[in-house]
């Protein structure tokens, strides 16, 4: 088995530009793959195909080599899922729900569920009806992770969690990754994706417009941007004369931003060595900025 998740040529046209169009992507075993996009871009549609709730009309989806539609039930032995909208069945408490889920999967040992609930500071004996949004989300997280599934499909798995719980969640995903599990997660929060994902795909109007490698962003870019301020205007002018790739000039502060490839870092320091530098700071490219740029690029292309 080469890929944990494999989507080839998946197209699902709902009309009016909604749906999914020619989506191709693969997720390697042990990889954490993120999915972002505006509401209605097709994230949930993609996850529904992977879950076998929707039948692909064109293209196909495979998980662990099995067809997501035809082998939907068998594949569920290996899949943990958090649905985008949490609606619990008519049972009283969180524990009743977890036990019900365990009985469907023939899971006997709820020790892991206990452990997860403790980590999320979740009282599973609370009635589902009186649970806050955050507690419901935690219950859904516990249900998805308790069986030790090898592929996790998480549709906005951490919505409604506060920063501390968010951290528990990202810690859990990282731990699953360390165990070799594959995680496919959609999210609205770039911080979260940056924290746990290996790669993140940006979905716009049903198409993947960009797949970013997190290791190559957030300050780790091959071509980095630095902002440098000089103590005096002469030094600033002398630096400008060196013809580096300038991205921004703020003459009133004697401040310049430059893009420098790894290989040219030496040249930058040699140029700066004889100048009076007040400070140098890096302007990391965040995932948000990266996608915003791609998003607006494609907007421009549309209007052109």
């Amino acid at each position: 088995m080469e890929h944990a998740i494999e989507i080839t040529g998946l197209t699902r046209d709902y009309g009016q530009g909604r749906g999914l169009f020619d989506v191709d992507l693969t997720v390697a075993p042990g990889e954490v793959f993120g999915l972002v996009g505006i509401n209605g871009a097709g994230k949930t549609t993609m996850i529904r195909h992977l879950m076998g709730f929707l039948r692909s009309r064109r293209g196909r989806c495979r998980i662990l080599g099995g067809d997501c539609w035809r082998q939907a039930a068998e594949l569920k032995r290996h899949i943990g899922h958090i649905p985008g909208e949490i609606a619990f069945p008519d049972v009283k408490t969180g524990l009743d729900f977890l036990e019900l889920q365990a009985s469907y999967t023939a899971l006997r040992d709820l020790a892991r569920a206990d452990d997860l609930a403790a980590r999320f500071d979740l009282d599973v004996s609370a009635p589902l009806k009186r649970m806050s949004k955050g507690m419901k989300q935690k219950t859904a997280i516990v249900a998805a992770f308790m069986s030790g599934a090898s592929v996790l499909l998480l549709d906005e798995g951490s919505t409604g969690l506060d920063p501390l719980m968010q951290k528990v969640f990202t810690g859990l995903v990282a731990e699953e990754k360390a165990k070799g599990r594959t995680v496919f997660m959609s999210s609205h929060m770039f911080d979260e994706l940056e924290a746990v994902c290996d790669r993140v795909a940006f979905l716009k109007e049903g198409r993947i417009i960009e797949v970013a490698r997190i290791a190559e962003l957030g300050g780790n870019e091959a071509v980095k941007e630095y902002k440098i301020e000089f103590a005096a205007a002469e030094d600033y002018q002398a630096f400008l004369a060196r013809r580096f790739d300038l991205t921004r000039r703020q003459d009133q502060f004697n401040q310049a931003s430059v893009r420098i490839a790894r290989a040219d870092i030496g040249a930058l320091f040699q140029a700066l060595a004889c100048l009076d530098v007040k400070f140098i700071t890096q302007v990391p490219r965040t995932l948000a900025a990266h996608f915003a740029a791609k998003y607006h690029d494609t907007e421009g292309a549309h209007h052109a």
Partner: peptide, 13 residues
């Protein structure tokens, strides 16, 4: 949407 939980397990439709 509660059926999602049932179909997220190896129970066939």
């Amino acid at each position: 949407g509660t059926l999602a939980y049932v179909l997220a397990t190896p129970v066939r439709r």
